[in-house]
Amino acid sequence: MLEPLYDKDIQCLACENTYQTKRIRSRFIRAYKHDTDFCSYYEPDHLNPLFYYVSVCPTCGFSQSDEFDAYFPPGALEIIKKEISSNWNVQYQYGQQRSIHEAINTYKLAILAASLKQEKHLTKAGLYMRLAWIYRTLDQKEDELKFLKISVLEYVNAYSKENVEKSDMSEIRVVYLIGEIYRRLQDYKQATQYFSMAIAMKDETHEKRIVELARERWYDIRQDQQKSYA
């Protein structure tokens, strides 16, 4: 009988050790609901691909996602060895089936690694965003909002300082997501600005659904504001 989890070989970007970590076979990934910021909910809930987004090297502790760049800025590898590897005891549990709390730990490890490595803003934004989604599934609102606030700043930096078109995310998707996170943080002025930017891209993009989502969220804000003034 085919198991939902399989072993994937990963080469650590820091120590170059090859290790195995779990992934979920695509046929077992069943999303039954999606939020307007692209957070998905899965059944059964323990077969959530978010739990396995981060790979943790059991030897040196460096944690990475598939979006991490192989390049290390000068001095970054030495800092990682000092701050992470020198304090790391060999641990294999993250290469096995993960609980939701173990998944949370892997994101925090990856966020530390990404910060020390000076990883791209877009990559760091994705880590913070996914961690916020996991806290949402636990209904831990304070932690969710904490990481949403950090993620939106990273997305703004990515949009203003990086060529996001070279990533897996399109420009309009990044702009929409910035607006949607601001909306969830109740910063309606910023949210409206970014939704308007996304709508203005309607003739330049093939992602017409993103344009429609931006319009829907823009109208939601307008209606909420009208109700508050009524």
Rank of each mutant, 00 (worst) to 15 (best):
S151M: 10
V152K: 00
Y188G: 01
E216M: 15
E83Y: 02
L47P: 03
N157T: 07
L145C: 02
Y52R: 04
Y41P: 07
F72N: 04
G126A: 06
V90E: 11
A191G: 05
K22A: 06
F51V: 05
F62D: 00
E43D: 12
F147I: 09
E102W: 09
N48Q: 07
G95R: 06
E204W: 13
R215K: 10
I199N: 09
A200T: 14
Y128P: 04
A198F: 12
L122Y: 09
I84S: 00
V174D: 00
L77P: 01
F195D: 03
S65Y: 05
Q190F: 11
M169R: 10
K208W: 03
F51K: 05
P74L: 02
Y94N: 01
Q93M: 11
Q96R: 11
K141P: 01
W133I: 15
D224C: 11
Y219H: 12
D37V: 12
T106R: 06
A191N: 01
Y128V: 06
Y155K: 01
I100N: 02
L122A: 03
K33Q: 14
K81R: 13
A198Y: 08
D224I: 11
V156H: 03
D45S: 14
I172G: 00
R222S: 09
M169Y: 14
Q118E: 13
V54I: 11
K146H: 14
F38G: 10
I10A: 00
Y219W: 14
R23M: 13
E207H: 13
F68W: 06
K146Q: 10
T36I: 14
E119Q: 10
G75F: 04
I181R: 00
Q140R: 12
Y53Q: 08
Q226L: 15
K8I: 14
S65L: 07
W218M: 13
L112E: 08
P44E: 09
E180V: 02
K227W: 14
P4G: 03
K208V: 09
I29C: 03
Q223H: 14
H121T: 02
T36M: 11
I210N: 01
D224W: 12
H206M: 12
E16I: 07
Q11K: 06
R98D: 09
P74D: 04
R184F: 11
V175R: 01
M169D: 09
K202W: 04
T21M: 04
R136C: 08
I80R: 00
S167I: 02
R27K: 10
K124R: 15
Y32N: 06
N163I: 05
